[in-house]
Design a binder for these strands. Structure first.
Lengths: 203, 203
DNA sequence: TTATATTTTAAACACTTGTTTAACTTCACA
DNA sequence: TGTGAAGTTAAACAAGTGTTTAAAATATAA
């Protein structure tokens, strides 16, 4: 009876997000979404024209959350090493709070139409980024060894995200409960930046 | 007209693997599998009792290929550094030759029932592994710094597999064609082992 | 060849899917 | 208060789903 009431459109979207994230596009059924939202099936098509359009808006939001966030952090004007530590820390927390996003984004992206990336100006944002310039400067100062930005990004993101993608296997092998897995990820907050810096520092 | 004839059961399985890998369990349709195999729909259920059972057998095979392969390589009796270089090299090649396997395995594993792992003795294979002992020995000899086997495994696999999972994005951002992406992965064959060794070597 | 089992087929079945319809209710406002 | 718009509903629609059936074709063996 508290302020939990939302307008119908928002209720549907919230329910759809939950269902799509858990089951994917094909696995999610409109009736399931309607049930989760507690509304009539027809209302889903009344507010959003089709399943595909509803999915698309949710996909875009989560794509932006998943990749936009890392790009934003990369472009903060912070010294490189501090930045890497900070990104790993904050991105790990983000992924732990939203563990379904990575597999959702990547699985639905198998067919991979350019459209999404173009609409989000992904390439431009990275090419013209402060991060790219920062890396070049650190290299020419002799502070770090040369590395392509994309390799560094893949290393940061992959090291954080992959254990989440493989979480059932990781938890089974490591015999982790929910807290155990969280602690495993906390350990990586130290390992991953140290490893990256160990590589980057010139010999 | 050459020796391309197979028995029906094998034809169905081969077609099913291709379709399941590309579209996932929900996205794959029996009629599509039957068409790809060039057989009547009913034959799919004649040879395999149901869609689920057909899927299960294919999933198991690919799970074994995906994780079994890395476990096997980890347990070869080779000096640690040599081994890491070799694994990254060979596993990268394997993933490049079978790029659909990782997202297939991980996406279908969202719900993550223990059953598969138990049947494949995943935990035991890792716990009692030569690799685990080897790591401990290297640590006590002072050759490397302490690290949990699972962290090292996640780092190796994540660094190789993640770019494949994010391939559409990577290729778009890096403006790669098929060869360009392959070359990007070839570069990682050097970066990833060097980074891991830079971390492991004691200060 | 004949009889028996195996394989293959077209058709249908029962059910679920996303979507639409047309009637009904609620609301805003002149 | 009355009127049109917006919101909601149960029901139906057409297409697609995995699966089964019963008959036909083919292979196997006596």
């Amino acid at each position: 009876m508290a302020g939990e009431e939302q307008d119908t459109e928002a209720k549907i979207k919230r329910a759809a997000e939950q269902v799509f994230l858990e089951y994917g596009y094909e696995g999610a059924k409109i009736r399931q979404i309607a049930d989760a939202a507690g509304v009539n099936i027809a209302l889903v098509n009344y507010y959003f024209r089709s399943k595909e359009q509803l999915f698309k808006s949710i996909y875009m939001e989560n794509f932006r959350a998943f990749f936009g966030r890392i790009v934003m952090m990369l472009n903060e004007e912070t010294p490189l090493e501090v930045k890497i530590w900070k990104i790993v820390d904050r991105y790990t927390d983000f992924i732990l709070d939203n563990p379904l996003i990575p597999i959702f984004i990547l699985a639905e992206n198998r067919k991979g139409s350019d459209v999404f990336f173009k609409e989000l100006h992904v390439r431009e944002v990275i090419k013209s980024a402060y991060f790219t310039k920062q890396l070049q400067e650190e290299v020419s100062k002799g502070n770090i060894r040369p590395i392509k930005p994309l390799h560094l990004i893949m290393t940061i993101v992959g090291n954080i995200v992959f254990p989440i993608l493989a979480r059932p296997i990781v938890s089974y092998v490591g015999d982790f409960d929910s807290d155990g897995f969280r602690q495993f990820m906390e350990e990586r907050k130290k390992i991953v930046p140290e490893m990256i810096m160990a590589y980057l520092r010139p010999v």
